[in-house]
Amino acid sequence: MSCFRVPQSILSNIERECAKFWWGSNAESRKLHWKKWDYMCKPKCQGGMGFRKLEIFNKALLAKQIWRILRKPNSLVGRVLKARYFKQGDIMQAQLGSNPSFVWRSLLSSRTLLEDGLYWTVGNGKSIRIFHDKWVPKVRNFINNNGSLILNEIRVDALIKDGRRDDEAIRGSVLPYIGDEIHRIPLPQTPRDDSRYWKYDSKGRYSVKEGYRMGIGLYDMPAKQTQFLREFEVVKVDFDQQITLGQFPLVPLVESLLNLVLAPLFE
């Protein structure tokens, strides 16, 4: 699953067998499935059981390979793919091309998942396109002071002069509130190339776990539900301690039942 995109029909068959096993079905008897498998695959904080959706998990694994090629472009597989499919730029700008292999098709099918959480760290600014790439954390769309779209190929190094921000160039290129966000971005003390980082990790590294969370939309959770879950965590800790002191082995069951009842109220 980490090298190829598994056909949906195969994934559906695997999930069907997992559901049968969970609900106790076998060749001799069929059991009632009380919940759809999609609901069972929801995170526990949303009332589900946290089972993996195999299609999204497959994409998260493939996105890990793209991340490795980004971080180590001089690796053997990175050089082979670059020579074959993207002689200019990097894998994030690569096209499908003519007569692509199944591996290449599989990798590109997961690239959008990686793009959603990928941002640029400013170095020399020569690789980052001001009005196209994501490099200002709180800004997605750039418009200049005149309100017209700017050519995508203008690079961030046009806003840097002698290792410092060019205030005049910034004021003439973007709206004031965007300029304020640009001024908050630190510049390196010594010259170095631009690099990418994963927004949803404290160390900026992509992981399959975080990619899966992105794929199921966990980072798009409404603010009111996030606040509820934060408060529920506090209650859950105290509740777990009481049950542990009383030596009742019912914590997982009670927690799951509470999630099933309360989580749909915030969907």
Score class of each variant (00 low, 15 high):
residue 259 N to D: 07
residue 184 R to E: 12
residue 52 R to C: 03
residue 163 G to R: 03
residue 230 R to D: 07
residue 206 Y to I: 03
residue 140 R to C: 09
residue 206 Y to C: 05
residue 183 H to D: 14
residue 98 S to F: 09
residue 242 Q to W: 10
residue 74 N to Q: 09
residue 203 K to T: 08
residue 211 G to I: 05
residue 8 Q to D: 09
residue 257 L to Y: 06
residue 63 A to T: 10
residue 24 G to H: 03
residue 210 E to C: 10
residue 84 R to A: 02
residue 213 R to K: 15
residue 51 F to T: 11
residue 112 T to R: 09
residue 259 N to Q: 03
residue 130 I to L: 15
residue 240 D to E: 14
residue 192 R to I: 13
residue 167 D to E: 15
residue 228 F to E: 00
residue 146 N to K: 14
residue 238 D to A: 15
residue 42 K to S: 09
residue 94 A to Y: 05
residue 143 I to C: 07
residue 241 Q to K: 15
residue 112 T to L: 11
residue 220 D to E: 04
residue 253 L to N: 10
residue 149 L to H: 13
residue 59 K to N: 15
residue 10 I to Q: 07
residue 190 T to F: 02
residue 150 I to D: 10
residue 259 N to M: 05
residue 184 R to T: 13
residue 154 I to G: 08
residue 147 G to A: 07
residue 38 D to T: 13
residue 233 E to Q: 10
residue 144 N to Y: 04
residue 259 N to I: 01
residue 56 I to W: 01
residue 25 S to C: 01
residue 228 F to C: 01
residue 168 E to Y: 06
residue 163 G to N: 07
residue 242 Q to R: 14
residue 169 A to S: 09
residue 193 D to P: 11
residue 231 E to V: 04
residue 251 V to C: 12
residue 251 V to N: 11
residue 63 A to D: 09
residue 229 L to C: 12
residue 29 S to D: 11
residue 138 K to E: 15
residue 241 Q to D: 09
residue 204 G to S: 11
residue 231 E to H: 12
residue 253 L to D: 08
residue 249 P to F: 06
residue 165 R to T: 12
residue 48 G to R: 01
residue 91 I to K: 00
residue 168 E to C: 08
residue 160 I to R: 03
residue 246 G to K: 14
residue 55 E to D: 08
residue 236 K to A: 08
residue 191 P to T: 00
residue 40 M to K: 11
residue 45 C to M: 08
residue 265 L to R: 03
residue 148 S to Q: 14
residue 20 K to N: 08
residue 28 E to F: 06
residue 222 P to Q: 09
residue 6 V to I: 15
residue 17 E to G: 09
residue 165 R to Q: 11
residue 8 Q to N: 10
residue 260 L to K: 05
residue 113 L to S: 09
residue 97 G to D: 15
residue 255 E to G: 13
residue 141 N to E: 13
residue 164 R to K: 11
residue 105 R to E: 12
residue 25 S to D: 04
residue 222 P to L: 06
residue 246 G to W: 14
residue 134 K to S: 02
residue 70 L to V: 14
residue 9 S to V: 02
residue 166 D to P: 01
residue 49 M to F: 13
residue 79 R to Q: 02
residue 53 K to R: 10
residue 135 W to S: 12
residue 166 D to W: 01
residue 111 R to S: 03
residue 114 L to A: 00
residue 106 S to A: 01
residue 52 R to Q: 05
residue 63 A to M: 11
residue 227 Q to E: 12
residue 264 P to E: 00
residue 19 A to F: 02
residue 101 S to D: 04
residue 119 Y to H: 11
residue 136 V to G: 08
residue 175 L to Q: 11
residue 78 G to N: 09
residue 96 L to D: 02
residue 185 I to K: 04
residue 94 A to Q: 04
residue 156 V to T: 07
residue 34 W to R: 04
residue 225 Q to M: 05
residue 141 N to I: 13
residue 163 G to Q: 05
residue 146 N to A: 08
residue 120 W to G: 00
residue 36 K to R: 11
residue 160 I to A: 06
residue 226 T to E: 00
residue 181 E to L: 09
residue 54 L to G: 06
residue 142 F to R: 03
residue 64 K to Y: 05
residue 116 D to G: 11
residue 11 L to M: 01
residue 91 I to D: 00
residue 199 K to S: 07
residue 229 L to Y: 07
residue 161 K to L: 02
residue 123 G to R: 01
residue 251 V to T: 10
residue 240 D to N: 15
residue 207 S to F: 00
residue 106 S to G: 00
residue 48 G to A: 01
residue 200 Y to I: 07
residue 172 G to E: 14
residue 4 F to H: 07
residue 98 S to A: 15
residue 267 E to Y: 07
residue 124 N to H: 10
